[in-house]
Design a protein around this nucleic acid. Structure first.
Lengths: 202, 202
DNA sequence: TAACTTCTGTGACCCCGGTCACAAAATGAC
DNA sequence: GTCATTTTGTGACCGGGGTCACAGAAGTTA
């Protein structure tokens, strides 16, 4: 069943809007680009934008969706690394190093991902998808005796995703710090080994 | 030096705007209340609002500022608890139980706190203040041998604040879960003791 | 090709956050 | 008190996100 003219145009136009929007966001910053700027750059009318993205911010969520794909591939690629802690470091390195050097765009994206997770009930729940993809890793780690059976793998996965976003967040809030990958590794080490002193009574 | 008529009115009017705004936000939700609704409720003109709050969202940040005061008091009140981990649990219980049951308002507030931390460079940095208030606790804990000297107290404080926000965030995103205090305690325990299995090789 | 249905494009329009030039009120000097 | 100065209040106005009734193109049927 071939793709009809309509269907192909639909895909292509959405992609075109997305690319033009990203280009403009990078050039001028998310807040300084109007929807009309985007549509003018595409040679279409303003209303058409809303046939493809329900809100301006959905361009950013679409961008975030791309990270989910990277995560999925990365999870699949590293299954042979038996040590789950090391595997997680490899996976998150994949995610974090692919972040291009557009901190302002990244800031706006993170804000929108967080906002949609809190305020929107719909299906586009990036964070939830993220957690779901990592849960099996923790199930495996618990089964292999690498991680304490004391905690629910879903909770572990959730906390790790929180740690990931927090590392990203801290780095964006204060880019003078060490690079993101190092920051995330530090946080992961804190979490893995615990922060209590050896032999501390509590 | 007595407070002039001007100064007292200024304080009172700001408080009035704040209270009316909160009342309306609780009734109808942040997004469904316009600045004009607020000023009408106060019997003033729209423009006057902006003499007291630079943006609509600053009402929420003002609300967040209240939490900083609670934190400050709570930190002072619990200094006699020598075990820092227990002390942290007491402090965060103070913070979390005082959250009134207005999840939608709280969601909007969290979003604005996060957004301002990322996007605004100005002084009103709630999260940074938060971290600053907790850093001495970790310095004390390291000095007392309760926490490993391996990590910088500022980094520990920062990570803990991240953990606090993430617990709040998870709970708001999925209120069906256990209550916030329990969730935060679980996360704090994960962080404190580490998630690695006892005797795990890594 | 004509007639009809369904999907896509359009831009005038509405709404609301935020601004600004000006008006009114408070303060201070005399 | 009067006048000059400073602070605060005002609402018309602007810009941009988002909507919607309609126009026109694509697809379908005969």
């Amino acid at each position: 069943m071939r793709e009809s003219l309509r269907e192909s145009r639909k895909r292509e136009l959405k992609e075109e809007i997305f690319l033009q929007a990203l280009r403009l966001f990078k050039e001028r910053g998310y807040e300084n680009v109007t929807v009309e700027d985007i549509t003018t750059a595409c040679g279409i009318a303003k209303g058409t934008f809303y046939n493809y993205f329900p809100k301006k911010e959905h361009v950013l969520l679409h961008l975030g969706q791309g990270q989910i794909e990277i995560l999925r591939e990365s999870v699949a690629r590293h299954t042979r690394v038996r040590n789950v802690r090391k595997r997680l470091k490899l996976i998150f390195k994949d995610l974090l190093t692919r972040i291009d050097r557009e901190p302002d765009l990244l800031k706006a994206t993170i804000i929108e991902i967080l906002r949609s997770s809190l305020l929107v009930e719909e299906e586009l729940q990036l964070i939830a998808e993220f957690e779901l993809l990592l849960t099996p890793l923790f199930e495996e780690a618990v089964a292999a005796g690498q991680v304490s059976a004391r905690w629910d793998p879903r909770q572990l996965s959730s906390f790790l995703v929180g740690t990931y976003y927090y590392a990203l967040f801290s780095w964006l809030a204060n880019p003078a710090q060490a690079d993101v990958v190092a920051l995330f590794h530090t946080h992961l080490d804190m979490l893995w080994g615990g922060i209590a002193a050896e032999g501390g009574k509590d």
